Amino acid sequence: MEKIILTGATGFIGTHTIPFLQDLGYDVHAVTSKDNTRDLRDDVTWHSVDLLNADQVAALCERVKASGLLHLAWYDDPKQRMTSGHNIEWVEATLHLARRFAENGGERIVFGGSCTEYDWKYGYCSEGITPTQPESIYGECKTSVHNILEKFSAKTGLSYVTGRIFFVYGPHEAENRLVAYAIRSLLMNKQANFSHGNQMRDYLHVADVADALVALLASEVTGAVNIGSGRAVKLREIVDLAGEKLDGTDLLHYGPVESKFDSPVVLADITRLRDEVGWTPHFDLEDGIDDTIEWWKKELNVATSQ
């Protein structure tokens, strides 16, 4: 059974990758920063490792000797992620992890990249065509890792691909992110405030993102591959859909709030994902919102008859 190291295994996306990895027969070695793993799922092998600690990372790679690495861990404070200097620490940690993984017989790396690596003024983001000229230090650090690992893999023979993840929603999402905030507010019968909502974004259900990442791992595709739906939707339409399903459109308020990252359109070209990896989304937006609503109802212990 092929061993896989999964970092970020308790995170929003990482949690959802485990069933897909198991379905393909991988022996999953999941990494968490938690000291106590007894309350975590017992169908994978857990490793308590601080990925910012070089000695612990070296010991992990030597102990597991995995052939595959799905690296999703990163600094992820929602309020500070785009601007924090901690992103630089994760560049260093990722490169050290990749090197130690390769030294211990590792063969393939899938890195969780980001659509923020692109220059958003182009709107339509296509690998190899759209410039990678990030506005944020987060995006700059992600694309720097990609560039270095591409050259490292070419020199060492390591197989490497980065999945540039666009916009994600679904179960286990942080409560202050767009879709989760809207649904939670509606279920709690509270007013929800948003910007104008006319920005168009490429959103994908988290289970589809996880499935696509695992499909990348199982493929032989290298370089950068966008992970998105290939369809841009107004943020307002997504929020209004949740409002209609929960009979709470009167609780949704839109205003002129703007952001530095408030580009009109950000859309993924998913040609490589579809044609080379052979993957397409399973959730459409309506089914994805339904699934997310049901999860939040259970999480908040809201009557399902609502």
Rank of each mutant, 00 (worst) to 15 (best):
5 I>Y: 02
5 I>N: 03
10 T>R: 09
11 G>R: 03
13 I>G: 05
20 F>P: 00
25 G>Y: 08
26 Y>H: 14
33 S>Q: 09
39 D>F: 11
41 R>S: 13
41 R>C: 05
41 R>F: 11
41 R>W: 09
45 T>K: 15
45 T>N: 13
45 T>V: 14
47 H>K: 05
48 S>T: 12
51 L>H: 00
51 L>A: 03
52 L>C: 06
53 N>M: 01
57 V>R: 04
57 V>I: 11
58 A>V: 00
60 L>M: 13
62 E>G: 09
64 V>A: 13
64 V>F: 07
65 K>L: 06
66 A>R: 04
66 A>F: 07
73 A>T: 05
75 Y>T: 08
79 K>A: 14
80 Q>S: 07
81 R>I: 15
90 W>E: 00
92 E>A: 10
92 E>Q: 13
93 A>E: 01
93 A>W: 09
101 F>S: 05
101 F>Y: 06
102 A>H: 12
108 R>Q: 05
109 I>M: 14
110 V>Q: 05
111 F>N: 13
114 S>A: 13
114 S>G: 11
118 Y>R: 04
125 C>E: 08
130 T>A: 12
135 E>Q: 12
136 S>L: 14
138 Y>D: 05
139 G>C: 06
147 N>F: 10
148 I>A: 10
149 L>M: 15
155 K>Y: 14
160 Y>D: 02
161 V>G: 08
162 T>A: 15
163 G>F: 02
165 I>Q: 05
166 F>P: 01
169 Y>M: 04
170 G>Q: 08
170 G>T: 09
171 P>N: 04
172 H>Q: 12
177 R>A: 03
177 R>M: 14
177 R>G: 02
178 L>T: 14
180 A>N: 15
181 Y>W: 06
183 I>K: 03
183 I>C: 12
192 A>W: 04
194 F>R: 11
194 F>Y: 12
195 S>K: 00
196 H>R: 13
202 D>T: 08
205 H>A: 01
206 V>Q: 07
209 V>Y: 10
212 A>Y: 07
214 V>E: 01
215 A>G: 07
216 L>E: 12
219 S>M: 07
221 V>A: 04
227 I>S: 02
230 G>C: 12
232 A>K: 09
233 V>Q: 10
235 L>S: 09
236 R>F: 03
239 V>F: 01
243 G>R: 11
247 D>N: 15
247 D>W: 06
249 T>P: 00
251 L>S: 06
255 G>Q: 09
256 P>F: 08
257 V>K: 15
261 F>Y: 15
266 V>R: 11
266 V>K: 12
267 L>M: 14
278 G>L: 12
284 D>W: 01
287 D>F: 10
289 I>P: 08
292 T>P: 03
293 I>W: 05
295 W>E: 02
295 W>Y: 15
302 V>Q: 02
304 T>F: 03
305 S>N: 10
305 S>D: 05
306 Q>E: 10
306 Q>D: 07
